[in-house]
């Protein structure tokens, strides 16, 4: 793999990580470790796990997500994250934009094939 390709995929991954985190939370509240695990399962994201935590903190500061503490039967209380109404709205727009981008790129590829 060329260095150009590696740099490009790194930039793309960085760009979509926030979208991936917000989408992970769209199904319901999750605690930090669980979010990291789920993102880790997406092969093409290939993240170092710690990268997620500063993004969670930033999304919380920007009021896209909120946290609350919940008792756990398996150990100490855990900090759960969930989408705020603002975050849900932002996620809707981001997914819409992603869809447009995907379709536009798809159309460009089809044109090239003709």
């Amino acid at each position: 793999m060329s260095e150009f390709y590696i740099n490009w995929t790194t930039q793309v991954r960085k760009g979509v990580l926030e979208l991936a985190i917000l989408n992970t939370l769209s199904g319901g509240p999750l605690y930090g470790y669980d979010i990291v695990r789920r993102l880790g399962d997406v092969d093409s994201l290939v993240i170092t796990e710690g990268t997620v935590y500063p993004i969670l903190s930033r999304l919380k500061n920007e009021e896209h997500i909120e946290s609350y503490i919940e008792e756990s039967s398996a150990g100490p209380p855990r900090k759960y994250y969930r989408l705020t109404p603002r975050g849900r709205e932002e996620l809707r727009r981001m997914n819409q934009h992603w869809e447009q981008l995907h379709n536009a790129l798809g159309a460009l590829r089809k044109e090239r094939k003709r």
Binding site: Y31, G32, E49, P54, L56, S57, G75, R78, K79
Partner: peptide
């Protein structure tokens, strides 16, 4: 905030 998450991460892992 991040430190609390990392401590929790290590605890769970």
């Amino acid at each position: 905030d991040v430190e609390q998450n990392v401590r929790e991460h290590v605890d769970v892992a």
